[in-house]
Simulated scan of single mutants.
Amino acid sequence: MDNDFSVDLDDILATLRSHDIVIARFVTVHRRLLFDFRSTPLDPPLVAAVDPLPSIEARYRHLRELRPRLGDPPKLVTVFWPRFVASLADTPAWQAVRGRLSASGHPGAVESADAALAGLVDLERAAQREAILGGRAFRTIWSASPSPR
C-alpha cells in the first residue's frame, strides 16, 4: 500500500520539463534520483541514483566530477516523491523524463534511466524485506513470545 499523500503532478511535470538538473527525493530510500538533461554530442543526458550530500555546494562539486565538460548548471531543483519509488514509473512524470531523454538523440539514454529507477526500486524492496523480516536498520519493539516482567 502506498502513502496517501497527494502529489502535485502538474508541478513535478513542469519542473521536469523546464529545468536541466532535477533531483528526486523519496520517502522509502535514502538515495536520490539525479536527472541531468544537459547533453552534448559526446555527453548523453544522465539519470543516476546518487547518495544524498550535506550541501548544495557538495552537489555542485559532485556534478563537476560526474560531468566535467558541462560546467556548472545555473540552478538545481529538488522534488519530493512521497510515494513508493516504483509508483513513479507509472506516471506522466516518468513519461516526460523518457520523452526528454529520447529527444536528446542519444541512444540508450532511456534504457539507462529505466535501469537507474529499477535500481532504486530494488533498494526499496530490500528495505521492505528488512522491515518485515528484521535487518540491520530495523529492530523489533515487541517480541512475538511473552517474556517475564
Rank of each mutant, 00 (worst) to 15 (best):
F5A: 13
S6I: 13
L9N: 10
L9H: 14
D10S: 13
D11N: 12
A14S: 14
L16R: 01
H19K: 15
D20R: 08
F26I: 03
R31V: 08
R38G: 05
S39D: 04
S39I: 00
P41E: 12
L42Q: 15
P44Q: 02
V47Q: 00
V47W: 04
V47E: 01
A48F: 01
A48H: 02
D51H: 06
D51F: 04
L53D: 10
S55R: 03
I56T: 09
A58Q: 10
Y60H: 09
H62T: 09
R64C: 08
L66A: 15
L70Y: 05
P73M: 03
P74D: 14
V77T: 15
F80Q: 09
P82F: 07
R83D: 07
F84Y: 14
V85M: 13
A86F: 06
A89R: 15
D90S: 11
D90M: 06
A93H: 02
W94H: 10
Q95N: 13
A96G: 11
L101Q: 04
G108I: 12
S112T: 12
A115M: 10
A118I: 01
G119S: 12
L120Y: 06
V121R: 08
D122L: 08
L123W: 01
E124D: 07
E124K: 09
R125Q: 09
A126S: 05
A126Q: 08
Q128V: 03
E130W: 00
I132P: 00
